[in-house]
Design a protein around this nucleic acid. Sequence first.
DNA 1: ATAACCTGTAACGTACCAGGTTTCAATTTT
DNA 2: AAAATTGAAACCTGGTACGTTACAGGTTAT
Lengths: 95, 95
Amino acid sequence: MLMHNPPHPGEVLKELCIEPLGITVTDAAKGLGVSRKTLSRILNGKAGISPEMAVRLSIAFNTSSESWLNQQSQYDLWQAEKHRNELHVTQLSVA
Amino acid sequence: MLMHNPPHPGEVLKELCIEPLGITVTDAAKGLGVSRKTLSRILNGKAGISPEMAVRLSIAFNTSSESWLNQQSQYDLWQAEKHRNELHVTQLSVA
DNA sequence: ATAACCTGTAACGTACCAGGTTTCAATTTT
DNA sequence: AAAATTGAAACCTGGTACGTTACAGGTTAT
């Protein structure tokens, strides 16, 4: 089932991982092995979580990469579903 | 849990949707509202299933867009996990 | 066999996005 | 006051989804 209005994965990352640990964005970026800008863009919802970034997060925060990428998929799908009625698609199967 | 060596989502699409209906790639592309090349690239594993394409597939084949995009995520993540040990990431949390 | 169709794919272009470095301004911390 | 932190801008590279057009090889129908 599709979640209702899922938040930015970056929002979750900030509130559940960065802030609780009391580490700075700068240091978190260093630990993740990415630039500060890259992490900043994610935390502020300007960029999504790539498959590779999901793996980085899973290492740094001892979580599952799947959960991070699934969150991103849910978010992306929610955006795409908004325009469902604008797509010119005809039914091909009735199953 | 991460699936073991997930197949191309396009492979699944071909075997479970296109072939059973006996429709041509050309007609399927028309029904989906995309170019024949776009669908062909997906079916042959040269392109992934985008969020918008997942919605198109859900309409055409009366399925869930989530399942299509999740399949793609599983596949992408499987590729990314292959290089897990090449990433310079330091542990930030011990939880 | 000739014509029509189906298919993968190449070549070209457009658009978008992740990621990098550098730099700036504003805020916060020390 | 000085140093650190942050968001964001400009600019670049690389990758990818998608489009049209075109070709070559295969299949099917006439």
